[in-house]
Design a protein around this nucleic acid. Sequence first.
DNA 1: AATTAATTTGTAATCATTACATAAAAGAAA
DNA 2: TTTCTTTTATGTAATGATTACAAATTAATT
Lengths: 151, 151
Amino acid sequence: MIKYAEIESENIMKIMSIPEIKKYLSTNGIKPSLPRIKIFEYLNNYKSHPTADEIYNALIDDLITLSKTTVYNTMDLFLKHNIVIQILIEENEIRYDSLTSNHGHFKCIKCNKVYDFKYDLADISIKELEGFSLIEYHTYIKGICKSCNEK
Amino acid sequence: MIKYAEIESENIMKIMSIPEIKKYLSTNGIKPSLPRIKIFEYLNNYKSHPTADEIYNALIDDLITLSKTTVYNTMDLFLKHNIVIQILIEENEIRYDSLTSNHGHFKCIKCNKVYDFKYDLADISIKELEGFSLIEYHTYIKGICKSCNEK
DNA sequence: AATTAATTTGTAATCATTACATAAAAGAAA
DNA sequence: TTTCTTTTATGTAATGATTACAAATTAATT
Ligand SMILES: [Mn+2]
Ligand SMILES: [Mn+2]
Ligand SMILES: [Zn+2]
Ligand SMILES: [Zn+2]
């Protein structure tokens, strides 16, 4: 029987207001500049697991001086401070996620949407890996989502 | 309790001789040219989950006219005929595996070796994915392997 | 051998990411 | 405020893995 990791109610799953984001960045040692706030807001509140390019295109109309380098720099900074994780599902595309607790991803090959699901490999003991130290866990599935199936 | 997928004894886990590889390629609709045989041999018999570049460098001394394009073309052909799968663990590096049945991967951050372990997500029912059609399953872990831990 | 098809190769193009130098903004000292 | 210093953001160029494409080689067929 698998014990699903509970996603704590106070974590960054939930949508955050600008003041909450400012506080969250500060708490994690990141000075909350405008681009950083907007990038984190997009990442956390839309939960679309975007690529750097998608983040850039989503924000450029609002932050008209934003550069793609800033998006990459910011994501590297967020990664260093462990407030985002990278998601690799397709070759040549790095996606980002502000939900850092262990969970699985499902990518629909029809609509390309990436869904979260509760799942934590850490709860499973794999006998072949005895003596190994496990640091990072990743699980992803490709298929067709419910919504696309119903069409 | 997790039911591990059994890796069948007759499958491509085991090291194959050149005649066996020829037969295996033919059976799967691939004409067994010399580069194709050597590439498959390297992939299957070393089981190191190599990148295209690693395959090229491993074989160039033997197949002195080999081009990197041929490695890529061959991997695409193998993928199309489902005798290899792609493994994504690090950004910007596609690894290949001739073991196509579901299993997990462990990458050691010290020695960079990629280990296989028996694990099949298909055996696990995830309630959040009811109504979804699941096609491909991937599981990987990063950490420190037993051998590096013992040093 | 001549013709045709399949395979392999080398070179150039692509494109996401990174490197790097400069510019702008923010913060501290005076 | 002004000056000095540090941090943040930007633009351009470089990188490097993968792909596109056309030519060359090899294999198969007539
Ligand atoms: Mn997620
Ligand atoms: Mn494997
Ligand atoms: Zn869908
Ligand atoms: Zn190791």
